[in-house]
């Protein structure tokens, strides 16, 4: 149990000459919620894409339960139990909400009937049951974000990567999503969350990792990180002399 659940070791991802993510390392223990924050363009989404297999890192390693997963394709990682959402939501627009989730359920339940039953359970949990038979394209933004989470959850992941699932929601919707995330943690799912809304990050994260220009500039409890001068500088710029 002393083994870290997810280890990100000196991961670098370069586009052309630009280091989108440079030598970033951190660890996650099972059952933790870690917030990943940083100003726009800090490399949060790139790091997500590297962890979830959409990009292979130029150097560095990612160990998931001690298994080297760097550079493995996303569909293999999904089968290993890594679920992710996309910042720009990607519903299967022409299919119904239920069908969207059924597709994700096939990983664990290859038979259609069982997958469907599982999908209903997921929708129950995420509060989309009454929208199950509408087309995904007719959902509101809040609904689409919920659908993103539902699809990732249907994989029965042990590690969940959430990319800005709260941003853009109104306060009531945001609270419901936060409740959902906390209930997932209580089910033992380890969560890495990217979010711009500090209220969310500060309230739910056990630890926070801060990126700026692709590099990790701070890591620690939400309270400590919020006081860190380097973090304040990254967000607000240098104080006038």
């Amino acid at each position: 149990m002393s083994e870290p659940f997810l280890q990100v070791n000196a991961v670098t991802k370069t586009f052309g000459g630009l280091h989108a993510v440079f030598q970033v390392s951190f660890q996650m223990n099972a059952g933790e919620i870690i917030g990943l924050i940083g100003p726009n363009g800090a490399g949060k989404t790139t790091l997500f894409n590297v962890i979830s297999g959409f990009y292979a890192p130029n150097s560095g390693k990612i160990l998931f339960k001690n298994l080297d997963i760097s550079g493995k394709p996303p569909y293999k990682l999904a089968r290993l139990g890594i679920g992710r959402t996309f910042q720009v939501v990607k519903p299967f627009a022409g299919l119904t909400v239920l069908e969207n989730v059924v597709i994700a359920s096939f990983v664990k339940y290859p038979q259609r009937r069982k997958a469907e039953k599982h999908a209903w359970q997921i929708l129950e949990m995420t509060g989309l049951v009454d929208r199950a038979n509408v087309q995904a394209s007719s959902l509101t933004l809040a609904g689409r974000k919920r659908l993103e989470v539902s699809k990732a959850l249907a994989l029965e992941p042990t590690l969940l990567l959430l990319d800005e699932v709260v941003a853009g929601l109104n306060p009531t919707e945001a609270d419901r999503t936060i409740e959902l995330i906390l209930s997932l943690r209580s089910q033992g799912i380890t969560i890495l969350i990217v979010e711009h809304i500090m209220r969310v990050i500060m309230n739910i994260s056990d630890r926070v990792v801060v990126l700026n220009f692709g590099q990790k500039i701070a890591e620690g409890s939400p309270r400590d990180v919020a006081k860190n001068p380097e973090v304040i500088q990254a967000y607000l710029g240098e104080a006038p002399q």
């Binding site: 519903p91 299967f92 022409g94 069908e99 597709i103 096939f106 990732a152």
Partner: peptide
């Protein structure tokens, strides 16, 4: 459903194990 998932969004399909 799997082929339709690819048609609608292959990135999302990939992240769901397809």
């Amino acid at each position: 459903l799997k082929v339709k998932a690819i048609r609608e969004d292959d990135q999302s399909a990939m992240s769901l194990g397809l």
